[in-house]
């Protein structure tokens, strides 16, 4: 019994860490643009595919080198996606709804390309950290990487957004575009940077945790949904909320899988999402913002 609880908690927290990473990658773009990138889950999976083709069974130095390289490449790709997404949005507001359409089409395009190139299969990847035992339970090494990636990105982002000039400028965007522009900030460049950083977060995480995720073209959708749920639970835009929300959602999903079977996992996610939106639309840890009229 105790070991079952341990399994649920450990798995839940580790899987949940992935959700909170995706939630944080949502947050930075949302704060800078009010856009939620529906392709974020597929970008995450892209990192997993990169791990399979470039770093499977590789030694630690190669793995680290590839991690840095992939992080940068996916960051640039997502910045380019951001450029495309922002093209039709004049005036830097997301009043227009075109971004939802363009980010969804990008997610469909990524899934379609992966499907054409690699087929509908799930690839298994071995990572650099070996499995170990905790409470007598064999635990994949990538669980540690997942939690490390979450905490690492959380600390990096906190430092960046609060202590550097560029980061503070991005935080200012989340308050008021016009004021930020009036203060002389290059709004569009900061927004592209935010897209790039979100790509680095999701891409690097996908790469690092490839051994414990389903590296297949249609898996992106599941991660983007659970990442969104984690973001909503934590309050959209709130990274501290995401770090708590992700593991919460993860443990809940594991508990659900344990009680009623893994096949109902997506249904459970949908129900959790609907219930959260109906009763706590601002999230459990959301912050109240002054309403603009």
């Amino acid at each position: 019994m105790l070991s079952e609880i341990a399994v649920i908690v450990i798995r839940g927290v580790a899987i949940g860490a992935l959700f909170s990473i995706i939630a944080m990658s949502f947050n930075i773009v949302h704060n800078a643009t009010r856009i939620l990138n529906f392709a974020q889950g597929h970008i995450f999976i892209l990192g997993g595919f990169a791990a399979y083709f470039l770093a499977d069974n590789a030694g630690l130095p190669t793995w680290l080198l590839m991690l840095v390289l992939i992080t940068l490449v996916i960051g640039v790709l997502v910045a380019a996606q951001g450029w495309l997404t922002l093209l039709p949005l004049r005036g830097n507001t997301s009043e227009q709804d075109s971004w939802m359409i363009s980010t969804v089409s990008v997610s469909v395009i990524i899934a379609a390309i992966l499907m054409l190139l690699y087929g509908p299969f799930a690839y298994s990847v071995s990572g650099p950290v070996p499995a170990f035992r905790i409470f007598g339970v064999k635990t994949p090494g990538a669980f540690v990487l997942a939690i490390a990636a979450m905490l690492g990105w959380y600390c990096l982002l906190s430092f960046f957004l609060r202590r550097t000039f560029t980061g503070l400028a991005i935080s200012a965007l989340s308050q008021d575009f016009d004021a930020a522009r009036a203060a002389g900030l290059g709004v569009r460049r900061l927004q592209l940077l935010a897209f790039g950083i979100s790509g680095m977060i999701a891409g690097s995480a996908g790469f690092m945790v490839a051994p414990i995720i389903s590296v297949s073209p249609d898996a992106g959708m599941r991660y983007v949904l659970n990442g969104f749920i984690a973001a909503v639970v934590g309050g959209i835009g709130n990274n501290s909320g995401a770090v708590i929300g992700g593991p919460l959602v993860g443990v809940m999903a594991m508990l659900m899988a344990y009680k009623v079977g893994g096949a109902y996992q997506d249904l459970a996610s949908l129900i959790v999402l609907v219930v959260i939106l109906m009763f706590w639309p601002q999230g459990l840890f959301g912050r109240a913002a002054a309403r603009r009229v």
Partner: peptide, 14 residues
């Protein structure tokens, strides 16, 4: 807005 976008997407998958 996007909240409902995710709900509908999730339903389509489930």
């Amino acid at each position: 807005g996007f909240h409902l976008g995710f709900v509908t997407l999730s339903a389509a998958i489930v």
